[in-house]
């Protein structure tokens, strides 16, 4: 990671120092297989001897409960919705991600701020506003985007755990039933992710392929980043430029 780069002004009151670790974000819609692949990546990295920390959306100790409560009530307005996610992210960034990067860990983030941007914009949010809100976020070293088309996605979700209220964007009333709503909602999200993929240079991985091929593709994107990490870590530390004081000459008797 080296020198710190933020999307906006960053955390103005904080000097994070040198971040020796690497921040890798895996993005993609619900059901694109993110969590499965993150688990496999963690295993793969740890076997090679890298320290890995994973962090996931809405998993902060501060906010996870508030978000659960809010989702159950289904009464969220769009601003609170986005700001709750932003608070959760900020809490994880400062208490989890930055300390881990400082200590040289590889941080695998299951979703990153792009998810929040997509969701807010699909809900009619102002892109300028939501981007500014996340101005405190670190720019990741790598963003892998598991891209899937909406038909494959719908089938996959039905086959696995079924469609739920929020993943179908039912708060938006886009369709008359769960299925129609799911398709319209996810289609709009995919459109946003696709736009951002160009703007923020995501590494796009086709998530319709068999899991082994996807995993292979992800590893090939991550490998180059590890090399620079290793180099930085194992580079011989520069000899300190402290001049060696010559022994004081013995006074001749």
């Amino acid at each position: 990671m080296g020198s710190v780069r933020y999307f906006g002004e960053g955390l103005t009151y904080l000097n994070p120092g040198r971040l020796r670790g690497k921040l890798i974000a895996i993005e993609g819609t619900d059901g694109s297989g993110r969590s499965t692949h993150i688990e496999m990546l963690q295993e793969w990295l740890e076997v090679q001897g890298y320290g890995v920390v994973t962090t996931g959306w809405t998993r902060s100790s501060l906010m996870s409960k508030a978000i659960e409560v809010a989702k159950k009530g289904n009464i969220l307005d769009r601003w609170s919705f986005s700001l709750l996610y932003a608070t959760d992210f900020a809490d994880r960034l400062e208490h989890q991600i930055i300390p881990a990067l400082r200590a040289g860990f590889i941080v695998l983030a299951d979703r990153y701020i792009y998810t929040a941007l997509a969701r807010d914009i699909v809900r009619g949010g102002n892109p300028e506003w939501i981007r500014n809100v996340f101005g405190f976020a670190l720019i990741p070293d790598l963003v892998c985007y598991l891209r899937i088309d909406v038909d494959t996605l719908a089938m996959r979700v039905i086959e696995s755990k079924g469609m739920n209220f929020w993943e179908s964007g039912m708060d938006l009333r886009l369709g008359s039933d769960l299925f129609d709503s799911f398709k319209k909602y996810q289609m709009q999200l995919i459109e946003q992710y696709d736009k951002m993929a160009e703007e923020f240079r995501f590494e796009v991985v086709d998530a319709r392929k068999p899991p082994e091929e996807i995993q292979e593709a992800l590893r090939s994107k991550i490998e180059p980043i590890l090399k620079t990490a290793k180099k930085a870590a194992s580079a011989p530390t520069q000899p300190e430029a402290v001049p060696i004081e010559p022994e004081p000459e013995q006074l001749s008797p």
């Binding site: 100790s61 608070t87 900020a90 809490d91 400062e94 809100v133």
Partner: peptide, 10 residues
């Protein structure tokens, strides 16, 4: 455990 940013966002 509130930081200036989480305090502000909350």
């Amino acid at each position: 455990t509130l930081t200036p940013t989480t305090f502000s966002l909350l």
